[in-house]
């Protein structure tokens, strides 16, 4: 069979190095990968370090009720202002009408009677007006009274609520204080026991000597130093206790360092017991 010989001669050398496709996208991707890795490291390291920050939270069994009630109650108070009577405006209009009536008969008697009637009427109206005014006054007084009563009631309610909240707070504080005292006493006992255990008391010590020791605590409850404040009188015993204190390297920390908020001193009485 015959093929047309289509041998082309345009070729470049086959030995010429070929450049691979996508070199620049690849470089860009490599840079992206590295910056992502770097960001991950920075983020990871800084995140890990920030974790141990201590957080203090107060836990409440329930919300303080006092404020809530106070906000709810005062709404009905401003009512009394609305009732404002204005009777004097109506009356002057009636008077001119009455003057017209006696003008019809021209006799003096009638005139006199009319005058009298007029007077009477005026008096009656005055009385009526006075009565009305009195009524208004009474009404106003009543409203005022009611308002005052409401206020008193409200005040009483507020007082009860406040008292209750105060009592609750006080009891809570008292409970916290007792807990704190108990914890402090517990901790003091622990320290005293440790010192007593460590103290190597010679047999020559007799009786029950008691020595006062003052410990100085750091903010977090770590003991800074300890010294004998009031010696027992038995020098050997005092020295033994001092040696024990000096020998203790790892002081126990209180379970709750906040109980000893701030720098505190702890006085211990250590008595020789055998």
């Amino acid at each position: 069979m015959t093929y047309p010989p289509p041998i082309s001669n345009h070729r470049r050398s086959p030995l010429l190095a070929r450049t691979e496709p996508g070199r620049w996208p690849a470089a860009l991707l490599a840079v992206i990968v590295h910056s992502a890795f770097f960001a991950l490291i920075v983020f990871g390291v800084s995140w890990r370090v920030k974790l141990p920050d201590p957080a203090i939270a107060e836990l409440w069994d329930q919300l303080p009720p006092a404020r809530n009630l106070l906000e709810l109650v005062p709404t009905p108070v401003p009512e009394p202002e609305v009732v404002r009577p204005e009777p004097p405006v109506v009356e002057p209009k009636v008077e001119p009408k009455i003057e017209k009536v006696p003008a019809q008969p021209s006799q003096a008697d009638i005139q006199l009677q009319a005058k009298r009637e007029k007077l009477e009427k005026a008096e009656r109206e005055k009385l009526l007006r006075e009565e009305k005014a009195l009524k208004e006054k009474q009404k106003l007084a009543e409203v005022e009274k009611k308002r005052k009563e409401d206020e008193l009631k409200l005040k009483a309610a507020q007082k009860i609520v406040e008292d209750r909240a105060r009592a609750e707070l006080a009891s809570k504080e008292a409970a916290a204080a007792t807990a704190r005292n108990a914890a402090q006493a517990d901790y003091a006992n622990k320290i005293a026991r440790l010192i007593r255990d460590r103290a190597n008391i010679p047999d020559s010590v007799t009786g029950r000597p008691e020595v006062s020791v003052r410990l100085r605590l750091l903010v977090n409850g770590v003991i800074l130093d300890a010294e004998v404040v009031k010696p027992s009188g038995d020098k050997v015993y005092d020295d033994a206790v001092q040696r024990a204190i000096n020998g203790i390297r790892n002081w126990p920390q209180p379970e709750n360092a906040e109980l000893f908020g701030g720098r505190r001193e702890l006085n211990l009485n250590i008595r020789h017991e055998r």
């Binding site: 691979e20 496709p21 996208p25 690849a26 991707l29 840079v31």
Partner: peptide
């Protein structure tokens, strides 16, 4: 090391493209 890592990632992507094509 960072240079080596850069180069190797570059080649990784270059190879990825060329092998795929």
């Amino acid at each position: 090391l960072i240079l080596a890592s850069m180069m190797s990632w570059w080649y990784i992507f270059v190879k990825m493209f060329s092998v795929r094509s």
